[in-house]
Design a protein around this nucleic acid. Structure first.
Lengths: 193, 193
DNA sequence: GTCTATAAACTGATAGAC
DNA sequence: GTCTATCAGTTTATAGAC
């Protein structure tokens, strides 16, 4: 047994909790909901995650980890920047099909009710994303694919904010095409033809 | 006494509830919080708003009403489209200073936990906003201020989504300048120089 | 590790006096 | 209209048997 390996139960709990959190928000589901979803008693969930704050932190750290891996996969391709951007958009787009939004977008929208312990890692997620996006934007500008003025990381912050908002509004209007059109508009906005 | 006029208490309750909802989210505050905020007993709040769903609906309808008035005020000016867009952005920007986001953006992010009764009026808010924004975009394109391709109302949906996401991300990073830069980028994206 | 049982606090909500 | 008092249900969390 590998050190640091998660048990199946822990993963099942996290999977169920993540789906609930991305769909309803972290303040709109309970240990009872997870219990019902995976067929385990509430007390058993507390064994793995003593407090809800522990659960929320584990959820966030795992999400960040998974997202970092997805960025790495895109980086390891030889895709041109515009395609990398589209693949990045698809990471978010997939959640829409599940009636969910980005876990970090959800946590950010509820930030005033978020345990203080989670604020730094949450902010770090957004910084990581904007730095990565900024690199892609800069590479595209350098090879002539993109045309835009100003700092690429600053621009990346607008791109990230747009994607996060796109998920929320598209889901509210039950219109995933809104999100697809948003990605097109983002590319058009940075001069991609 | 005018018919349909709200009592002071009702307004105080709605004011407190709105601040709490825009800061924490509707599922992260209780009647006890309102009670503490304005110095009234919980039972008295139930007298004005029997159920929390009643309160949430009243909150949404009043917000829509206030927003419509703000749009009208912008319309009645002779400002050029680009300035109208900036004034629209300022409507959102103001909430940031209060540590809040758009009430409808908040409700949209929690939509899976939202009472079914509120979904239609919430969607209507977004439709109203995009129609209004589409008109401004179209006017700007016609007078040469803006340059962009495609349907102006579709484009307006991207603009609205960006603003909503901008509020959420800017607040999470405690950096209101992110939102200001986003507005600039939106204008640049529709060809405004 | 999972269970039953239970606790303590909080939630939305109601009854009835003033 | 506002209050006190109270309710039933839910929430997070713990104790202890298996």
């Amino acid at each position: 047994m590998m050190r640091g390996m998660r048990t199946n139960t822990q993963d099942e709990i996290l999977n169920a909790a993540q789906a609930l959190a991305q769909q309803r928000g972290f303040n709109a589901f309970s240990y009872a909901d997870i219990s019902a979803a995976i067929g385990i008693r509430k007390a058993s969930i507390h064994y793995h995650f003593p407090s809800k704050e522990d659960l929320e932190l584990a959820l966030l750290l795992r999400y960040v980890e998974q997202f970092d891996e997805a960025l790495l996969a895109i980086d390891q391709s030889a895709d041109p920047p515009a395609l990398k951007l589209r693949r990045y958009g698809e990471l978010y787009r997939r959640t829409l099909s599940l009636g969910a939004i980005c876990l970090c977008g959800m946590m950010a929208s509820d930030i005033a009710a978020l345990p203080a312990m989670l604020r730094a890692p949450l902010a770090e997620f957004f910084v990581t994303q904007t730095n990565w996006l900024g690199g892609v934007l800069e590479a595209g500008r350098r090879n002539g694919e993109f045309v835009f003025a100003g700092d690429s990381v600053l621009r990346a912050r607008s791109v990230l904010a747009s994607l996060q908002g796109g998920l929320i509004v598209a889901r509210a209007l039950q219109d995933a095409a809104l999100f697809d059109a948003l990605v097109d508009d983002l590319l058009a906005g940075i001069g991609h033809r």
